[in-house]
Design a protein around this nucleic acid. Structure first.
Lengths: 257, 257
DNA sequence: CGGGCTATTGAGGATTATCAACTGGTGTGG
DNA sequence: CCACACCAGTTGATAATCCTCAATAGCCCG
């Protein structure tokens, strides 16, 4: 269905064979994270010691030793999705994480949330590199360095605001608005590929897209087909490329007073 | 439509004339908040000095001096809703806050979220008492007391998890599930009234209920009427009383694997 | 007592989910 | 290396949920 570019090449573009997590790369990645910018040297050293790095292939889940009292995860490269299963065959993607973003996982006493139903599942959308550490070891560091707590809080406030935005839009607006908003958001999430600037740099099936904005797979497919005919996007098995943002922005715009 | 109890009395029950925020009450309220439990004496003294108390009547908005660089709010008593306007006449209630919960408001550098569309509006659902302080003054206190940062973070994680739960359910499930889930959640939010244990202790119009779970006012009304005929709830202008939780729990249950 | 707001109820229509059949690409196993 | 199974995606027909519009009743306040 797609014209110029071979689909296989897109798949390879999105999923490099390995994630080179050499100690040096890992160190520099750590220091470049928004979360730790301006942190003092002791903090960085502590974190380098505590954080375990790990690379995930496409579709892999982030799991952790069950004895742990919860996990702090930092996404260095790639993309993750946070899924919630609602029935045995139906899930919703509640969030997509880009590089630099963090997540909590597990049943720490601090995260003692009354989880009804299923717990969240964190799964990679593409070849990714994550750093993880035991949550219990975070608190002492947090009090030692005055930069970290405000940083963490502000990340959470941003996440909460973003989720609220989606919540409102996806609850009220029709399918076209939802998908348009979603595509534009996703395009902003990851680092764009040099040779395909409009390509959303994750592996995304129609089912994923539908699960992100509460639509049936078929509805999402229909809408995307329509847009593809109009020349606004291109898409294939597991990838979507945005060619024209203007019409999508118009579809997902909120009226201004 | 409601049977035994006069509706006027419910309204008075939900909206006591005044919120008695004497210095003594305010002090004890402060020390009893989950957020500050176990905090050291200096912290409590600082906070008592910094926090301004304020009482809100039904439907009032929380506003703040525009010169401020953002606001931390703590809800001591009553209930607040966080609204987001999507069009000039349509809003969504993204969250309902109960006693002890916190909110951020304004344009602090920490809250510099790319807000497209309208900003959030915090509005009281009932006669409420809130404490507010300048966000900029929070950070130094945060680093001085090792208890606060984990506490704040855990509150945010809980809020995020709760919002994700709603997100998933309201995106996927039909109206009856949504409303059932909502009513049960709301019942848990506030302190129950002694003489009406099932009464949701907020002022809630049909429009609010609908805006909380992404339905049209009429749909919400229809579903509630049906439940009222079945004897599961009672309702009137601005209040809902849950009489039987079992059927609602069944409607909003997630299948377990 | 009248105006405005909240809630109820009905009819009609549009969006979207569901079910089903089909295509083509991918990867696996013989 | 080929055949096969499987998965992602497409498309159509049908049905159901839910929204919109509209008219009306009851409560609250001035």
């Amino acid at each position: 269905m797609a014209g110029g570019v071979c689909e296989g090449s897109y798949h390879n573009l999105l999923n490099p064979r390995t994630c080179r997590c050499s100690p040096a790369i890992r160190q520099s990645a750590l220091r470049n994270l928004d979360l730790f910018r301006g942190a003092n040297a002791t903090t960085c050293a502590d974190l380098e010691f505590l954080l375990r790095s790990r690379s995930l292939t496409e579709g892999e889940e982030v799991s952790f030793p069950t004895g742990d009292d919860g996990l702090l995860g930092i996404l260095v490269g790639g993309a993750l999705k946070i899924q919630r299963w609602l029935t045995w065959d139906q899930y919703v993607v509640v969030e997509v994480l880009g590089p630099g973003e963090i997540f909590f996982l597990g049943h720490s006493p601090v995260i003692q949330v009354g989880l009804r139903g299923y717990p969240d599942v964190v799964q990679s959308l593409t070849t990714s590199c994550v750093l993880t550490m035991n949550l219990g070891e975070l608190w002492p560091i947090l009090t030692r360095d005055p930069v970290l707590a405000p940083r963490l809080l502000s990340m959470f406030v941003r996440r909460l605001t973003e989720l609220r935005d989606h919540f409102g839009r996806f609850l009220v607006f029709p399918a076209e608005h939802r998908l348009a908003h979603l595509l534009l958001e996703l395009r902003r999430k990851g680092r764009p590929k040099a040779d395909a600037p409009g390509l959303i740099p994750f592996n995304l099936t129609r089912k994923d897209l539908a699960a992100m904005c509460g639509l049936a797979l078929e509805t999402a497919s229909r809408v995307l087909s329509r847009w593809e005919k109009a020349g606004w996007i291109r898409s294939g098995r597991g990838w979507v490329e945005v060619l024209q943002t203007a019409p999508l922005e118009k579809l997902s715009a909120l009226e201004v007073v």
